[in-house]
Design a protein around this nucleic acid. Structure first.
Length: 223
DNA sequence: AAGACGGGGCA
DNA sequence: TGCCCAGTCTT
């Protein structure tokens, strides 16, 4: 169970500032971060679901060369898509991505919708993916929760429960409260990278963490 | 609310 | 070996 309690504005602000400073230097570079082409971002989001980002990068570039448009993807045989995505595992994603592409061509004139509600109608698109597309492709201020964000919040702010509960309203509400008023897309990326590089699931690098002095997790360890 | 899906990377 | 990864969908 995740218990939400009010967080002081000061602590939130401090958290934001520190993390954004960290992000300026340490944010990772990935091919899907260089574009605002909505289809390219949608494809990336599918591949990234529950999958290590550095593993996705080379395969993603190959994928985008072969299927540069949603129409191209929709027309491709499913088996071919399944094969190219095979090294990523979770193979049902290939089918959902293909189905989504076909639906987008058929019902949306090949345009990727720019609202959470419409995106949620696509197979394989849940709250996280829908909001990520809104943020990364359309510049909307949509905060997201993934395993990294959930873990960081849990440790720093002292929420209970680390697993991603994609339908826990309170955690999503907290994410919106904690996110800065603008550039939330960048903010999301900063949190992912911080979770991947510093606030890792196993053996977090608390010794070189700039959030150390106010982190609930570390205080707990010291006791 | 819990379980299934998954190959690859890393300790 | 065992744990973990930019989640979603089905009981």
């Amino acid at each position: 169970m995740i218990v939400y309690r009010t967080i002081s504005k000061g602590k939130i602000k401090w958290f934001r500032c520190e993390l954004l400073v960290w992000g300026k230097q340490h944010r990772r570079k990935f091919p899907w971060r260089n574009t605002s082409y909505a289809y390219a971002i949608l494809a990336a989001e599918f591949m990234l679901q529950k999958t290590n980002a550095p593993l996705v990068a080379p395969l993603y570039e190959e994928f985008m060369e072969k299927y540069p448009t949603v129409e191209a993807l929709a027309e491709t045989q499913f088996l071919e898509i399944k094969n190219i995505l095979q090294p990523l595992g979770l193979s049902f994603r290939a089918e959902r991505l293909h189905k989504s592409a076909q639906l987008l061509v058929k019902e949306y004139q090949g345009k990727i919708p720019n609202t959470q509600a419409e995106l949620l109608k696509l197979p394989g698109v849940g709250k996280y993916t829908a909001r990520s597309i809104c943020a990364n492709a359309y510049g909307q201020n949509k905060a997201v929760i993934d395993t990294n964000v959930a873990r960081i919040f849990e440790r720093f702010f002292g929420f209970e429960g680390g697993r991603v509960k994609s339908r826990c309203p309170l955690l999503w509400q907290a994410a919106e409260e904690i996110a800065p008023p603008r550039d939330v897309g960048i903010w999301n990326l900063t949190l992912f990278d911080f979770g991947a590089e510093v606030c890792t699931a196993k053996n977090p690098h608390c010794d070189r963490c700039l959030l150390r002095e106010r982190c609930g997790y570390l205080k707990q360890q010291v006791k």
